[in-house]
């Protein structure tokens, strides 16, 4: 073997590593894949939260129309930032929004929060022990899932929803799902 080649080898290995490195650094290590994409929503049946003496929220409520499932908690700072937009979205009637009130230590905290700030949700379930959250593969609040007419998860957004994300990403998906269902 050529001896010179042996001396070039370390440089070559390093350069290859550096290229991968440069690409790898542009990716977000925290952004996990949406394992549920294209799969039916996991089965869950959650109790209602205090003050909303309806039937709670279950996976069987979802099929029939396109909807959003939003994971939130009164303890979650980013949810406070997201909340006004959800109110606005609910008022516009663009899409039904359901809520999963995740991991409240105090059972009154979630209902109080909604009472004070307004309640954008059609159905809300209480998930103190992360049953539904884990089934959805949630890592942190807020997360929002787009569920189609067949009750299949189509998209997951991690972090607070806002006007831009709604306009550029979520709404086009919903429009497409509705068009598919209509044809």
């Amino acid at each position: 073997m050529n001896k010179r080649l042996l001396f070039v080898l370390p440089l070559a290995v390093f350069l290859v590593l550096a290229v991968y490195f440069a690409i790898g650094l542009t990716k977000d290590p925290r952004k996990l894949p949406n394992m549920l994409a294209g799969k039916p929503v996991p089965a869950f049946a959650l109790q209602p939260i205090k003050g909303r003496d309806d039937k709670g929220f279950a996976s069987t409520d979802l099929p029939g129309r396109v909807s959003l499932v939003n994971i939130f908690g009164s303890w979650c700072v980013a949810c406070q930032i997201e909340h006004p937009f959800l109110m606005q979205l609910a008022a516009s009637g663009a899409v039904p929004i359901h809520g999963i009130d995740w991991r409240e230590v105090d059972p009154d905290a979630g209902p109080d929060w909604l009472k004070k700030k307004g309640d954008p949700y059609e159905l809300v379930g209480d998930d103190p022990r992360s049953k539904a959250a884990i089934a959805f593969g949630v890592t942190g609040a807020p997360e929002t899932f787009v569920v189609d007419r067949q009750g299949v998860v189509r998209y997951k957004h991690v972090g607070p929803l806002n006007e831009e994300i709604w306009r550029d990403i979520v709404k086009p998906i919903i429009d497409k799902l509705r068009a598919e269902g209509a044809s």
Binding site: R30, V77, A78, I81, T139, G140, G159
Partner: peptide, 14 residues
């Protein structure tokens, strides 16, 4: 700022 918030969302109760 967003990362900070996400970090807070995660760092709940002791």
């Amino acid at each position: 700022w967003l990362v900070l918030i996400l970090a807070l969302a995660v760092a709940d109760g002791p």
